[in-house]
Design a protein around this nucleic acid. Structure first.
Ligand SMILES: [Mn+2]
Ligand SMILES: [Mn+2]
Ligand SMILES: [Zn+2]
Ligand SMILES: [Zn+2]
Lengths: 138, 138
DNA sequence: TTAATAAATGCAATTAAGTTGCAAATATGT
DNA sequence: ACATATTTGCAACTTAATTGCATTTATTAA
């Protein structure tokens, strides 16, 4: 039982080929991925609906998170609680490059807590910064 | 020439019935609206494509802004530069209620500037806070 | 090792959001 | 009132995502 299989096990997901392959693919990419990205790469091997359902199962079981942007196309990236405990919701900033279009997780940057108007109860937050990324500025 | 007509004129848009009606509708609603919301209300009077194109023209001409959330369904709200100058990009926080589903602009809350990693050049930012709103907590 | 079973997959069909082309209608400036 | 560029309605189309169902597979327990 290798690392990736353990990762699935740990999140109570059955070990199947599509899950192993897509999980590894996420691990090898530092930028967020859309269904279309995965379909492009895996359509020879798996049905597009299976890819959708794989993303859904990863999302529901906390392996990945969804990153909203104004495009309306869902993008996902790995959660980083590679630690033992299945906890610590890691809320971090996302960066979208206007040049190359890629979205990155800035795990080092926390989203600052704001003082909301009376009676508003915050539970989670999403901060997306747009601009040009390090690579495109090089 | 009333207030709403002037608003359109000021943004170099021709004065048409659908624009007057939809602009007024935005002014009367404090929460963000989707195309579906507008279609629900206006389908008797205007074609759905016309409503899409009205939103696009409002967006391109700075009357409204688009608010990204994880639903993938585009929501829009009025920009508030009712001032004379066509400027001052007002970047503010948005709040989405997990109970009633409504999205509000928190114009009073600015998005804090963060220190990004080297070579990243920020240009704009979107912050969406989710939780329960004042009304749902009352 | 096998058998039982719950879960996952592939495929076809469907829903839903948004876009495009084009002819007809209309707003605006002269 | 006229000329013209813009806007509108309608039909068709694209794209993203979902659903139903029969088949296959992973897991657990005999
Ligand atoms: Mn992230
Ligand atoms: Mn707003
Ligand atoms: Zn870039
Ligand atoms: Zn609410």
């Amino acid at each position: 039982m290798n690392k990736i299989e353990q990762h699935l096990k740990h999140h109570k997901l059955r070990i199947t080929q599509v899950r192993l392959d897509i999980l590894r693919y996420f691990q090898n990419h530092k930028t967020a991925l859309s269904h279309a990205d995965l379909e492009q790469h895996f359509s020879k091997h798996f049905d597009r609906v299976t890819i959708y359902r794989t993303l859904t199962s990863f999302l529901e079981n906390g392996l990945i998170h969804k990153i909203p942007d104004d495009s309306g196309i869902a993008k996902y990236a790995l959660c980083r609680h590679d630690s033992i405990a299945h906890s610590t919701v890691d809320e971090h900033v996302h960066f979208k490059c206007k040049n190359c279009g890629k979205i990155e997780c800035l795990h080092a940057l926390e989203i600052p807590k704001l003082h909301l108007p009376k009676k508003y109860k915050p539970e989670s937050a999403n901060l997306l910064i747009e601009g040009t990324c390090a690579l495109c500025n090089a």
